[in-house]
């Protein structure tokens, strides 16, 4: 490489110029970071929406009937007509994975919605009312937090019997305390602020104070918690189904599909791998979406990039 005269001249620019350039570059990086977060948010949100659309129109998308058995094609390896192969009954794995999204994703959403609403309601009431009510309810939630979650869910699910909705109930029973903790601490932090006192003096009753003044101010952290929780809850639901306590055959559900293929992992790996891949993709998408939402709502990051 030969250095021309112009290049050597450029090397001799004064230190103040360098500082200036550095600052310009750092400003540019900050701008990139901000737009970067927005871009990430849009990207992962659209991926998540894509997954949801796929779930809603699962029946229309399926190339084959996911429940139709055809023993003549049982345990076929992935091919042009069966992109993910077939299972022991000759059912098309791709169709089963797509239709399985219904049980997996929709029930996860239902679960997260239930625990968010219930946990938040309990937490806000605890923070707002305080006193003995708060003490008792928080000790109960401590009990749930101290107990290993999945073990307790197993017990509840076993008690209720199989079925995806029973698994949802079992997981809801053990998962709400996290939300009530978040909601309670947020409520406590604004409970005695002047604007709450001002609204008391404006004649608001307790319900009006909670709905108009407390909830709008605590929704951010709760939203982040629940979006971040979608991935975890999906895994736990699939885990319960894998253990035979969630969706029951012949209902297609990713966890139970993996469970049935478990013994054939070495000989017919696609039976385990295709639902496993589906779980992997959806958990990654929702976790990254949660991360991005948290970054997006983080006030520190916003002030840094303004």
């Amino acid at each position: 490489m030969d250095l021309s005269n112009e290049n050597t001249e450029e090397l001799l620019i004064s230190s103040s110029d360098i500082k200036k350039k550095k600052r310009e570059i750092s400003i540019r990086i900050q701008k990139v970071k901000k737009s970067h977060i927005k871009l990430r948010l849009v990207f992962f949100a659209s991926l998540a929406v894509l997954l949801i659309v796929m779930t809603v129109f699962a029946a229309q998308i399926c190339p084959h009937d996911p429940y139709k058995q055809d023993l003549s094609v049982a345990l076929n390896a992935p091919s042009a007509s069966h992109l993910m192969g077939t299972d022991t009954y000759g059912r098309d794995m791709l169709s089963r994975v797509i239709i399985g999204a219904r049980a997996s994703i929709l029930s996860t959403f239902a679960l997260v919605a239930i625990i968010t609403v219930f946990g938040t309601a309990v937490g806000v009431l605890c923070g707002y009312i305080g006193g003995k009510f708060d003490g008792i309810v928080m000790r109960i939630s401590d009990f749930f937090l101290a107990f290993p979650g999945l073990v307790f869910a197993l017990a509840v699910a076993a008690l209720l019997g199989g079925g995806i909705w029973n698994a949802v109930i079992a997981l809801a029973v053990i998962s709400w305390p996290k939300y009530s903790r978040v909601a309670r601490s947020q409520t406590l932090s604004i409970r005695n602020s002047e604007f709450i006192n001002a609204s008391i003096m404006a004649g608001d009753n307790a319900l009006q104070i909670i709905v108009r003044h407390i909830l709008p101010n605590i929704l951010g952290p709760i939203l982040v918690t629940s979006v971040l929780d979608i991935g975890t809850m999906m895994m736990e639901l699939a885990g319960l189904s894998f253990l035979g306590l969630g969706a029951q055959p012949p209902v297609a559900e990713w966890g139970s599909m993996m469970s049935t293929g478990r013994s054939m992992l070495q000989t017919y790996p696609w039976i385990v791998l295709s639902p496993g891949f589906a779980i992997f993709i959806s958990v990654v998408v929702f976790n990254l979406l949660g991360d991005t939402v948290r970054d997006y709502l983080d006030p520190r990051r916003q002030s840094k990039t303004i």
Partner: peptide
């Protein structure tokens, strides 16, 4: 009552008009 901290006595998520008209 008029409170000590002017900004803190209004809900940050609502407009001033909302706070004034609430009663």
């Amino acid at each position: 009552m008029v409170f000590q901290n002017p900004v803190g006595s209004f809900n940050p998520r609502k407009t001033l008009g909302y706070g004034i008209g609430e009663s």
